[in-house]
């Protein structure tokens, strides 16, 4: 498998800055926005207000970068597609057991995979990420605000998830830097600890 070409630090920083700009919250003067804008803001901020979701999304990006090409892009392709199936199940009221433990387990498992520098086969990594995506999607679908514009909500929700993956990938590009692997494995440990905290309701 060919190794991913290292991006320059400036490009990585640029990618990270772009993601952070996209995650900026709207001005407080316009929080009463409804319709398309309100739905988009509601959908975009939905994945950002739960640390359990944020940690797992970023972890997917980091793990993908750690695994190299093509996993760096395949995992962020698999995740939203499967997550939407879970989201649809949530919207339609299809029950799914162990949602919160499943979400917490996603941070623990993927965090530990990064910590252990586990180079899982691509198919296995995609299956692991896909299974956890169902839980995340279901939680989002169930918690959907009634008033939100559905199209705008869906667009914002998917874009925010993608941005979180890109943030993880931007961090993951440190893998080619001196000591970058150590920093990423430490990040994996932090994510796994956070996941344990989510599981036991401490965080």
């Amino acid at each position: 498998m060919p190794e991913i070409k290292p991006l320059t630090l400036a490009r990585g920083a640029g990618l990270l800055a772009l993601c952070l700009v996209c995650l900026a919250l709207p001005a407080a003067a316009h929080t009463d926005a409804e319709g398309f804008q309100g739905g988009f803001v509601s959908g975009f901020t939905h994945p950002l207000f739960g640390w359990d979701h944020v940690a797992a999304m970023v972890a997917v990006g980091i793990w993908g970068a750690f695994l190299g090409r093509p996993a760096i892009w395949i995992l962020p392709i698999v995740f939203p597609m499967v997550m939407a199936v879970g989201g649809a199940m949530g919207v339609l009221g299809v029950p799914l057991p162990f949602i919160e433990p499943g979400i917490a387990a996603s941070s623990i498992v993927i965090g530990l995979a990064i910590l252990a520098a586990w180079r899982a086969p691509l198919w296995l990594a995609a299956v692991i990420v896909g299974v956890f995506a169902i839980f995340h999607g279901h939680a989002h679908g169930t918690e959907l605000p009634e008033a939100a514009n559905p199209i705008a909500f869906a667009i914002g929700f998917v874009l925010a998830t993608g941005m979180l993956h890109l943030i993880g990938i931007a961090f993951g590009l440190l893998v080619d830097r001196p000591n970058g692997k150590i920093a990423l494995r430490a990040a994996g440990a932090v994510i796994a600890v956070m996941g344990t905290g989510f599981l036991f309701g401490i965080v």
């Binding site: 939203p80 939407a84 199936v85 989201g87 649809a88 559905p150 869906a154 667009i155 929700f157 998830t161």
Partner: peptide
């Protein structure tokens, strides 16, 4: 993802 959510 957007299409599947909208179908739901």
């Amino acid at each position: 993802a957007i299409s599947v959510m909208l179908v739901a």
